[in-house]
Design a protein around this nucleic acid. Sequence first.
DNA 1: CGACCGACCAAGAAAATCTTATGGAGCTTG
DNA 2: CAAGCTCCATAAGATTTTCTTGGTCGGTCG
Lengths: 302, 302
Amino acid sequence: MERLPPLNAIKAFEVAARAGSFTLAASELGVSSAAVSQQIRNLETWFGKQLFVRTGNRITLTDAGHAIYPQTARALGDIAAIGQRMLEGGLRTRLVVSVPFSLAELWLAPRLAALLDAFPHMAIDVRAEDDPIDLMRQNVDLRISYGDYHYPGLRMIRLVHDDVLPVCAPEFWHRHGNGDPGLTDLHESLFIHTNWGPNYASHPTWADWFAACGASRSPDPSHGRRVGLSSLAIASARLGLGIALGQRVMAQADLEAGRLIALSTVSVRLGHPYCAFMPPAKADRADVAALVGLLVKTAPAT
Amino acid sequence: MERLPPLNAIKAFEVAARAGSFTLAASELGVSSAAVSQQIRNLETWFGKQLFVRTGNRITLTDAGHAIYPQTARALGDIAAIGQRMLEGGLRTRLVVSVPFSLAELWLAPRLAALLDAFPHMAIDVRAEDDPIDLMRQNVDLRISYGDYHYPGLRMIRLVHDDVLPVCAPEFWHRHGNGDPGLTDLHESLFIHTNWGPNYASHPTWADWFAACGASRSPDPSHGRRVGLSSLAIASARLGLGIALGQRVMAQADLEAGRLIALSTVSVRLGHPYCAFMPPAKADRADVAALVGLLVKTAPAT
DNA sequence: CGACCGACCAAGAAAATCTTATGGAGCTTG
DNA sequence: CAAGCTCCATAAGATTTTCTTGGTCGGTCG
């Protein structure tokens, strides 16, 4: 004894009945019109009754379809409302954002500043932590991570596909530079190497950058300075400690302010983009949407 | 911007919350407990909130789960009710049964008589028609067909896997018989051949029956009588026109009444069972359920 | 009358779902 | 207190559902 009609077919029916067209319904649902057609037919054979009359290329609700439409719309509306209630449930309007350590200061902070300009009363928690993290357990509304692996069930939005380029402080270049954009003759000890940690095997190194230049040089990481965080490489370069292979998004502000200079136009793309992850239900929250919108907008065109 | 939580996960949640156990919920849903576990987790990541607390091998609703349960139950109940309304919609309580020509008289009719004994006021339409038929267009509530091909979306119930055996009228055997259960010496013209029609290539013939006996004989269908309907073969045999390879379910009554005699205990199974098909929603109708129940009950154990 | 639009259909592709098998945590029992 | 049970979690692979693609047909509009 079957009990419940196929729920996704009910959903398709509700949209199609409202839209008055399978094609429109399809675009609302983000699928092809054939898919809607099939779902509707599925429901019709379940009931053993036609729900639409097909007159050539147009559809109209049958009496039976008319009879059940309001109920379907109401029931689905109720279910949609469940998601909303869930969001307000905790009566906590604090927005919790989690970012990797490296992005917190040089990338997220300035953007958050812009957001707070627009919404001065928004309560935001920023948590700096490295993967892996569990959104649910730690009550995180929005997580920024490196990599576009599609975690099952989480909504993902690509933010920026960054690249790295050699940067250093102007004084440093004044003192040590030789004017060669190929950086071929510089002493090995002048380079800052970033150790990305075990989780980030795909990050570019100085060897990658020189290879992109067509040079065979590859400064030995055992000489020179080494830092364990990409934002720290930028900071070190800014302080005149050497030439860093810095991520553009992190160096941007310093470059514009003249605290850093780019030593070449050659850059190497990172293996993956930075992405935002969130539980799908939270994508509807105004504050989450605002922040994601801002982050996407301020991303350089990829 | 996603809008609706995954509906099947909602369904799983409703059942699990009501049952208080994933395992029980799983058996109610007819799936494995792992499936329920996954669906629940799916919903939890969608909301970004736990719905159950897992304490070892036991589960309890969280506050959030408690908060949404009533809504889910109500919404799903509404959707289930849609199916019910659909059934009563036409205010027609007439039960429409469709059977192949061959089954109408000798198989369905006596069973319907039994049903009407029990429910004298039941209004029944019997339609005799061969495949293919379209349940929906022709407003058929229950279709009996040969073959257990699972039509997509229709509920199917196997009724009886019939076999054929040689039968004839007692007087006929008295006149022409030779006492040999192998029927080896009978003249070819005494056999009645059934032409099952183009759709039924798998039906057994006299050749199959003799092969089952281990005999090499195979009466030439160009001699003897030929009929185009299996029930007509039974009727012809009853009238003394020859020896038919009759289906047991059709000959049953005549055999018991002595109007036909079985000439052998050797029988050949049909290629497929007879099955009942119906739109899933109609399986809930009391009259449909009653008829199906009766048909299943009166089927000989297979 | 011809071009376009929208629904249908069938086949293959893609994705969601389920099963199986395994492991662990907490009861219950001897 | 340990052994055995039950029940949930998890991962990998299988299965089934769902979706897309490409093509056809009927109807409508210019």
